[in-house]
Simulated scan of single mutants.
Amino acid sequence: MIPRMEFGRTGHLSTRIIFGAASLGEVTSEETENTFELLAKYGINHIDTAQSYGKSERRIGPWMKHHRKDYFLATKTDQRTKDKALVDLYESLDKLQTDHIDLWQFHCLVDQKEWDTAMGEGGVLEAALEAKKQGLVKYIGVTGHGMNAPLMHLKSLEQFPFDSVLFPYNYTMMQQPAYKEQATKLLALCEERGVAVQTIKSVAKRNVEDRDNSYATWYEPLDEERAIEQSVQWVLGNRQVFLNSVGDIHLLPHVLEAASAQINPVSDATMDAMIETYGMKPLFT
């Protein structure tokens, strides 16, 4: 079973592996059923999806109809204005077959102009606050990709007491001094304020570029069991963070198995050797 810890100040005990339901974007109903059975086997109790993840919300809905109480359910909106974001929210509620979202997140809020719109008058933040008053949303979070995600999350947390953040966190990203500096500041602030920290791209190997990629990820993932184990355990070695699982259901069992084992510190020397062996490179520079 996957260990659990408090998800920030929400009071919810979440499994340290959060199911990244982008992996359900283009799968069949049968594959979805098999995936939920696998999640149940490992005791996963937290799902993270988004409006933009293809069929993901619709695949999750039939399961939520019968198992809603078993999961902390998170989704996201790409919209930056109040009116459009509320349309997204109601569509998510319908597709997910639920009357509330546990965590509603502003998806990839890293562009300054979009941030200004989202946080300003008539922005998505107003939508989230209104939805929270109505009981449609319990908690509010912000997510981000790219080099400036930690920096923008710091800015967001100074503007509003978000309940969670999500950003890329793996060994290769943290070898970049500028990124590491901002990520370290973000982690410290989240620790101080009780903000839940979600991480993505734990098993990223490198960008696809001109190589074949047979997985349902926009990047090339690690796919050897030992490499996945070491990368997952490196992330979970930071006792502050949660790990959002990989966006391919065929790699998911390896991530879950790695997280269910005793978490042992993975040395920099081990990770440096992996970089050499697998040609690992940061996804964002």
Results as ranks from 00 to 15, higher is better:
residue 271 M to I: 02
residue 272 D to C: 08
residue 266 V to A: 05
residue 30 E to Y: 08
residue 19 F to P: 07
residue 105 Q to N: 06
residue 153 H to Y: 02
residue 217 T to M: 04
residue 40 A to E: 15
residue 98 T to R: 04
residue 221 P to S: 08
residue 175 Q to C: 11
residue 182 Q to G: 03
residue 179 Y to R: 06
residue 262 Q to A: 09
residue 69 K to R: 14
residue 14 S to P: 05
residue 159 Q to N: 05
residue 84 K to F: 08
residue 273 A to Q: 13
residue 126 E to L: 10
residue 168 P to I: 02
residue 80 R to T: 15
residue 180 K to S: 08
residue 210 D to H: 12
residue 191 E to R: 09
residue 43 G to D: 14
residue 75 T to M: 03
residue 254 H to T: 01
residue 113 K to N: 13
residue 75 T to F: 05
residue 170 N to Y: 05
residue 93 L to M: 11
residue 101 I to K: 03
residue 243 L to M: 14
residue 232 V to C: 00
residue 253 P to V: 00
residue 238 N to A: 03
residue 15 T to F: 04
residue 45 N to W: 09
residue 25 G to C: 12
residue 44 I to A: 08
residue 154 L to E: 13
residue 203 V to W: 03
residue 102 D to N: 07
residue 158 E to D: 12
residue 26 E to L: 13
residue 282 P to K: 04
residue 39 L to M: 15
residue 202 S to C: 08
residue 198 Q to A: 06
residue 191 E to F: 05
residue 171 Y to E: 02
residue 114 E to I: 06
residue 77 T to F: 12
residue 164 S to F: 02
residue 69 K to C: 13
residue 247 G to T: 04
residue 235 V to C: 03
residue 248 D to W: 00
residue 149 A to N: 09
residue 6 E to V: 02
residue 94 D to M: 04
residue 116 D to Y: 05
residue 170 N to F: 02
residue 234 W to P: 02
residue 276 E to C: 10
residue 17 I to T: 12
residue 248 D to N: 01
residue 29 S to Q: 14
residue 227 A to N: 09
residue 21 A to G: 00
residue 237 G to H: 08
residue 18 I to P: 03
residue 36 F to A: 04
residue 47 I to F: 06
residue 12 H to M: 15
residue 119 M to H: 13
residue 139 Y to I: 00
residue 203 V to D: 07
residue 88 D to F: 01
residue 107 H to A: 11
residue 183 A to W: 05
residue 279 G to M: 15
